[in-house]
Design a protein around this nucleic acid. Sequence first.
DNA 1: ATTCCAATCGCTCAGATGTGCGACTGAACG
DNA 2: CGTTCAGTCGCACATCTGAGCGATTGGAAT
Lengths: 325, 325
Amino acid sequence: MTAVGRQGTLSDTRLMVRIAQLYYRLQLSQEQVGQRLGLSRFQVGRLLDRALREEIVRIEIVHPDARLIELEDALVERFGLRSAVVADTPEASSDEAAQRLARDAVAGAAVDFLAALGPTGSIGVSWGRQMLELARQLEPGWTDAVEVVQLNGATSLSAEPTRATEIAERFGATTGASIRLLAAPAIVGSPELRRALEADPAVGSTLEAARAASTAIFGLGILGRDSVLVGSGFLSERDQANLREAGAVGDILGRFLRPDGRIASPELDDRTVGLPLADLVAKPISLGLAAGPGRGPVALAALLGRYVNVLVTDATNARWVIDHG
Amino acid sequence: MTAVGRQGTLSDTRLMVRIAQLYYRLQLSQEQVGQRLGLSRFQVGRLLDRALREEIVRIEIVHPDARLIELEDALVERFGLRSAVVADTPEASSDEAAQRLARDAVAGAAVDFLAALGPTGSIGVSWGRQMLELARQLEPGWTDAVEVVQLNGATSLSAEPTRATEIAERFGATTGASIRLLAAPAIVGSPELRRALEADPAVGSTLEAARAASTAIFGLGILGRDSVLVGSGFLSERDQANLREAGAVGDILGRFLRPDGRIASPELDDRTVGLPLADLVAKPISLGLAAGPGRGPVALAALLGRYVNVLVTDATNARWVIDHG
DNA sequence: ATTCCAATCGCTCAGATGTGCGACTGAACG
DNA sequence: CGTTCAGTCGCACATCTGAGCGATTGGAAT
């Protein structure tokens, strides 16, 4: 640019373009730009302002993560969360491999979040495929917690192991914390039996610890063939039918929710062993994980019920929740 | 953004994205961003730097004029010009209406440039279609020049008027300057006649004024059916054939150039009435206009010969010149 | 364990930038 | 012709930001 000094009355737009080039591309100071073009520093500054406002100059955040962070902010904003983490997963597909990928990514994101979180106090955990993956990805020393406690009943009824103990053990192992298991079925046949179980010291003390835990971590389940609760045999055909009728969209800690966040079946809830959802609401950290297709509704229900204050999910579910919430 | 403070070890990239959002979108100061994210002002600044270098944040000048100004800068840079003006014309098309549009746009750009230029001293002008359009668009008071002088011979030989006098008169009329016409043909039959003409006081004094003018304004012509010189009857069939053979690409002030900027036919040049090209080189402002398809070669020739130090043209020709120069 | 190196940190200080203000300009209007 | 008023202007001043520097840290190599 050795061009003649005063370009004077050339259209404002062109002037702004030229100023923007000198300032942003050539990295001149506003002062220097002014000298070259025969303008005062202030005129340059004001024109630069205008160029930005009139979108002659555009500042873009181009990294793909930007979109994710926008989703996170939207979630935090909309639902008053403590935090939200949206993982980048390729694409929503019901293909099993893709689901697995989503689970891995969301688990990884949760691990990162937890590692960055600092002191967590005592940690309550649930079980399920998502929790298993999370447990697998934990790295030693990720927390200073001294106690890990199961939040809900887990002893498997079926051949397929739910590996609930493995999850809690892995949590404990990575940090040297002691673990407290909840040696009970997730769902029993009658309210009386549930109460009797909870009265038992072995179960009762764990429940007490679960209530006291300052951090809760759990997956958001869906109701379907794929559901771990179904696979584990805790849900009878009739229970399933009832839930469907009641409009249940999925579960937290074995307790099923309707789309608006209310308990779908109080009767079933009364037979479910573990921390009641009401106790989640007050937890400093109540972290719910939702990965894979179709988890939007249950995530939204959990958010509306205020059962989670940290949501970790994939982009597809995040978008669904924002669009429908 | 009410998210939890320390996001800690979340990938650097994500951190940069978040910082960029707070800084550029929300317009927080680096200090404030640092407070929100638990970072020092310096970390924020450095991350912001990195985000820019790694193109996580991109600053774009999006206005279409930006491209034109880049072309201008490239021309100025490459050919050591005093200035360059590239007008925005829709598209290169040999369609007559499109050519006219290009001419209008380039003339307008030249007018703007001249108006912004400030004192010009005495002004020398040529003639032709491009100059006519330029003259039409001049607005009263655009300059403080007190004298307008024709640079080259112009009296028409054919029925189609070249309107050379109209051009000079219009220049004079918009500013109250006196005008000096060159009452002579553009090209004569012999060198002797040319010399005789120039010795005549009426012609000679105008030529002297032309030499003294500090600003010269002229169009760059092309050799072809379309050429005004041809249309005006100054160029015989034989002259045209000779020029073609010599590789002439076009003319300035009736003097034809080869692609490298040298005179195509010294013999013809010796019969051409008007300011010699050598006198253009030293002028403070020597402004050449080139609009419409196929004017790239002559523009390049003019630049290589240093006959112009201000080029006003359209985007297509500008690009051609840069690509081929 | 000790040493070394490179990376990163926060600081100081100077320069760059934004803001609010009073002065000025020029066009519209009485 | 004088008044008004909106739009600009440049300036003083406060704030923000970038550059360079010594201190610190966290590993690798010895």
